[in-house]
Design a protein around this nucleic acid. Structure first.
Length: 462
RNA sequence: GGCGCGGUAGCAAAGUGGUAAUGCUGUGGACUGCAACUCCGCCAUCGUCGGUUCGAUUCCGACCCGCGCCUCCA
């Protein structure tokens, strides 16, 4: 942190379609908003990508600036949650509480830091109502049939983020034209709730907010009218972010909602987008039964965030082996220092629009170099490796634990393993190699790999 | 139909106007009682065809192929 900054953070901005140097509105208070989950189910690995990617950005920003305010919301009122609640015959608040808790657990398992603020939609209903009201006053919105609708034609620049004209948008076949809409592209700010549906009193009767309004209201309240960075998955560009911009910009007299808009690519399964409708999604918690969270994180960070990313069992296994190699180097070298070298190739890679694949290659380079070095130099390299890893949420576990941690209740205990290793040691001393090999094979069959070295026998669960 | 992204070794994945990082896999060897780990080495001319250039995978154009968005969606 004492290094003087020589490089600058450059980020690709969806709005301008180019990479540009990041210029904070207020260097003493960086503001970032990332769209969080709608909590009606467990999340899949595709939902985890933005969380991991922008968590990494959060870490880099924290290293660059003294005060970073990172908000990631929970959408806890939505028709899908209502549907899930009705299926389960539970109150909507029970469903959303269960799945928001599950989300936090999954995100923590992936080594994501907790955001500074986690706003809940249902706790911001008054703010949403007042924003909808303001938009009606400014004639950007109108009331029709119990709904409040945003009139997209009232905003000249509507469509800028996604690069579409109004005509283009309507050319698509999927626009549902409700008869109360003045214009087919208008979207809902507030909609009426039936007696048996959750709702809040409003000037337009009992109802609930539209999805887009939630994020605009929460961003305004916690971060301000114009924020530094707003991020999410590519599929949010249109309509979600486009509509957020429309709402916030019109409510704030034309001020931009965010200076930088960032969007991560999708995760593909066999060349196709992972999605709930295709049924090819992998739930994070299911994967966590089989892989350490760090392996999932490594996979996510091994591709650039804007690219689409392949996902398969082979990749998970390969990532696991890569981490084993890295932790293997770390295993024999004690030390707890962590230094972030701001002039290093790895750090510069992260500053360059989060080039995590390049930064990971630096992790490997540093680890090898550390392995070959001795003494003080080795300690320095170890600290640098830990420091670069810390920016990506990698390599922060204890190396010994990484290899020996029990992963399932069916695992053989560490004490038993060590007992067998001792027995094998005696067999080897007696030149009973057949007996020694038998023990080794037995352990291998039970998921334990032995590694002999001058310092003795190391083992790992593999 | 409109808008956008991509095609780099077996699998992934960076990158650059001057003959292509890194990881996993495979493979030859060293180490080892044998293995495992580790170490040394090997394995691609960057979708196709043209153009610009002394020189292009990297710039331009055309074409082929794949993928995404167009109000459920990270």
């Amino acid at each position: 942190m004492t290094d003087k900054k020589s490089s600058t953070l450059a980020l690709y901005n969806t709005l301008s379609r180019e990479k540009a140097a990041f210029e904070p509105i207020d260097p003493d208070r960086i503001t970032m908003y990332v769209c969080g989950p709608t909590v009606y189910n467990r999340v899949h690995i595709g939902n985890a990508r933005p969380a991991v990617v922008f968590d990494t950005l959060y870490r880099v920003l924290q290293n660059e600036y003294p005060n970073v305010v990172y908000a990631r919301n929970i959408t806890d009122i939505d028709d899908k949650i209502m549907a899930a609640a009705s299926d389960l015959d539970e109150d909507i608040s029970i469903v959303s509480a269960r799945y928001s808790k599950a989300y936090f657990e999954d995100m923590a398992a992936l080594n994501n830091l907790e955001p500074t603020i986690t706003p809940y939609a249902t706790q911001h209903i008054p703010e949403m109502i007042s924003m909808a009201r303001l938009l009606i006053e400014k004639e950007n919105a109108y009331v029709a049939d119990g709904h409040v609708l945003f009139a997209v034609q009232s905003m000249k620049t509507y469509g800028q983020l996604s690069g579409r004209s109004l005509d283009d948008m309507l050319a698509g076949a999927r626009v549902e034209v409700a008869d109360y809409k003045r214009y087919a592209g208008d979207f809902v700010l507030w909609k009426p709730s039936a007696e048996n549906e959750p709702g809040w009193d409003s000037p337009w009767g009992k109802g609930r907010p539209g999805w887009h309004l939630e994020c605009s209201a929460m961003t305004e309240k916690h971060l301000g009218d114009t924020i530094d960075i707003h991020a999410g998955g590519q599929d949010l560009i249109f309509p979600h972010h486009e509509n957020e911009i429309a709402q916030s910009c019109c409510a704030h007299n034309g001020k931009p909602m965010a200076n930088v808009w960032m969007h991560n690519g999708f995760i593909n399964i066999e060349g196709e987008k992972m999605s709930k409708s295709l049924g090819n999604f992998r739930m994070v918690n299911d994967l966590l039964d089989q892989y350490p969270g760090e392996v999932l994180r490594y996979v996510i960070l091994s591709a650039h965030y804007r690219s689409e990313q392949s996902f398969s069992k082979d990749l998970l296994d390969s990532a696991w082996r890569s981490l084993d190699t890295l932790y293997g180097y770390l295993r024999g070298i004690k030390g707890s220092d962590s230094i972030i070298g701001m002039q290093t190739k790895g750090y510069k890679a992260l500053l360059d629009d989060l080039n995590t694949p390049l930064a990971i290659s630096e992790l490997h380079r540093l680890a090898k170099q550390m392995h070959a070095a001795t003494g003080l130099q080795q300690q320095d390299l170890r600290a640098e490796l830990a420091g670069l890893g810390s920016l990506m949420g990698l390599l922060q576990s204890d190396a010994e634990q990484w290899f020996t941690q029990v992963r399932s209740s069916a695992d053989i205990s560490s004490a038993e393993i060590e007992g067998l290793i001792e027995k094998r040691q005696r067999a080897k001393a007696d030149k009973d190699f057949a007996g020694a090999d038998l023990i080794r094979q037995d352990l291998l069959a039970r998921g334990v790999v032995l590694e002999d070295s001058r310092e003795g026998t190391k083992w790992r669960r593999g």
